[in-house]
Nucleic acid binder design. Structure first.
Lengths: 99, 99
DNA sequence: CGGAGTGGTAAGTGAAGACTTACGGTAAGT
DNA sequence: ACTTACCGTAAGTCTTCACTTACCACTCCG
């Protein structure tokens, strides 16, 4: 669970993730649209893949990366655990604030 | 949007957040249950508050912190933007993998 | 108006991490 | 087989950041 938040904490990595959400891309294609080198993109992809936020498959000499729903689902489940509780706590705090 | 992920990327900060989800706590109470000093907790709370993941109110000489739904909502909205798309991409990639 | 209990801030330290260049390794084309 | 295109990894640098101790400000109570 820890890995997902850390993976999306970096701005460059979020950009990679968001571009892959539009369509599957190779490492070279990703690096072309970003202000960092290709090896940097490779390293970011490794982090995203370990967090199950992206997955990859071979495509000839290239390697295509796509978004992976598993990492997203893990984050959604985590956040949902706190959602109701947070709403209740917020209302309660707001009332105490009115005093 | 960026701040939320970075805020929850740190393990100590996630612990603070999760403990506050159970009940509102003061800085001292939080620090008592964590392996770091009280100033460290204060600094973490500042990050969480800027990300709108927690909010605070005075309670006499103390200061009570609670979870704030606004930060959580921002993350949920962000993830939901990619959810359908990720599912579709995953299925598509799985089919190509079967070849 | 002391003194005790709070908690935020400053300054410094050590580790984590986001980059770079250089290199090696594999797949397709001639 | 040689070349070209593609990509991952290694090693090094520089910044970011989590943490500490020391200090200061505020609130409540005697």
């Amino acid at each position: 669970m820890a890995y997902q938040f850390a993976a999306l904490a970096d701005p460059t990595r979020r950009q990679v993730f968001e571009r892959l959400a539009k369509r599957s891309l190779s490492v070279g294609e990703l690096a072309a649209g970003l202000p960092v080198s290709r090896p940097a993109v490779s390293q970011h992809l490794r982090v995203l893949e370990q967090a199950r936020l992206v997955s990859s498959r071979r495509d000839g000499a290239r390697r295509l990366y796509s978004v992976d729903p598993r990492g997203i689902e893990a984050m959604r489940d985590y956040l949902d655990k706190f959602w109701d509780r947070a709403l209740a706590a917020f209302k309660e705090a707001a009332e105490k604030d009115d005093e």
